[in-house]
Design a protein around this nucleic acid. Structure first.
Lengths: 215, 215
DNA sequence: GTCTATACGGAGATAGAC
DNA sequence: GTCTATCTCCGTATAGAC
């Protein structure tokens, strides 16, 4: 078995990972086209030439970075499966918090996908595919809660799921620069309020004058 | 007074506009860093040198493009003012449709702002400022409808407004490539369903067992 | 596996003729 | 106001030594 006495750091796989991580961060902060191979090498503490030992070219970096979304998708699936068929008032807050924290932890990847969506059709397709799968998962859960009679029968589940996820995603996207402490506070507030609106709607309860004026 | 007999097209102001329009379109499709001055000149039917006669440099183009957002803001303000204090079931559909059509007509600008948000802090700030002002406007309207008793008193108006706008914005952002016909269909459907969820919420009406089992 | 050195093209920008 | 010509630098990518 391969033994390492001292020093000798960074196995090939670690290097690949490291380069991809650095690239992802820089892509998020400066955009793909705005990130130079020199900057990537410098931030990774290596030379430009080494990048081409591990990857075919700069374009490959973007592809491989975006492919890491599958890990993100897996985590969301776990999130949805774990909360199987519990009532929405219990599950939705967990999904909301899980989704928002997941997006934040994978923030650079998400920012890169959103930012490069329109410049690189493949990225746009990957991003939309990811959102669609996640929305589909949530949709399935909502459908089951409709069947259980907990959600209204005429709820447009697909749009309800999309709206829920979009709102949290946009929230993250516009506050990604917050430090961890401020983020926790704002994310909690926003999530709670969003759930309130999403569950109960904006309208005042039954002010229909022909029925139940004051019950 | 300045007279023009024939030909002699493109006044200085028209040229500026034209260059900015072309730049905005290309920024949206290839990103700022991915757009070359050569490409802008070529698409505008002029030479690169002329760009520098009208603008200080490429960076100025981005700034001026993003500054066009004020026009967008004005239009939203008009939209909100015109529908003053009418009931939500009448006004919100108009706001939804107006917002979504506005965003689509100014699609290249919106895509550019979103895409370049994190690479260029000034753009990010401009974008967030724009969203904040629009949300604030909608929030004011909602607050008045709360006062009128039409919306529930405990509605988190700020988040309700943000969620409404975010959902429509993300919808546009992920379907910007649809052709006009398909767009009209999908936008109508989405908008109607979103309003349904937003107004009435997802929960089934009062299945509280201690009260009104079947009224 | 990692670095040095270098080729090559293209990017933004300027000068000056018309 | 518009174009042609050109400058300079920097970006990606390769070759080859260690």
């Amino acid at each position: 078995m391969p033994e390492r006495t001292t020093t000798a750091r960074a196995t090939p796989d670690e290097r690949r990972r490291q380069i991809l991580d650095v690239a992802c961060t820089l892509f998020a902060h400066h955009g793909y086209a705005g990130t130079t191979t020199k900057a990537i090498a410098s931030a990774a503490g290596i030379t430009e030439g080494l990048i081409y030992h591990y990857f075919g070219g700069k374009a490959d970096l973007l592809v491989e970075v975006v492919n890491q979304r599958s890990a993100l998708l897996t985590q969301v699936r776990t999130l949805l499966r774990d909360e199987g068929d519990a009532p929405v008032v219990r599950t939705m807050p967990l999904i909301a918090r899980g989704w928002v924290e997941l997006v934040r932890r994978q923030g650079d990847l998400v920012i890169t996908m959103v930012s490069e969506s329109h410049a690189h059709p493949e990225v746009g397709a990957a991003f939309q595919g990811l959102l669609d799968e996640i929305r589909g998962g949530l949709e399935g859960y909502l459908q089951r809660r409709v069947a259980a009679g907990e959600l209204r029968a005429d709820l447009p589940v697909s749009v309800a799921a999309a709206s829920f996820l979009s709102s949290l995603l946009m929230f993250f996207y516009t506050r990604a620069d917050l430090d961890e402490a401020a983020w926790q506070v704002e994310a909690s507030r926003f999530t709670a309020a969003l759930l309130d609106v999403w569950l109960h709607g904006a309208l005042a309860p039954t002010q229909n004058p022909t029925q139940n004026p004051t019950p």
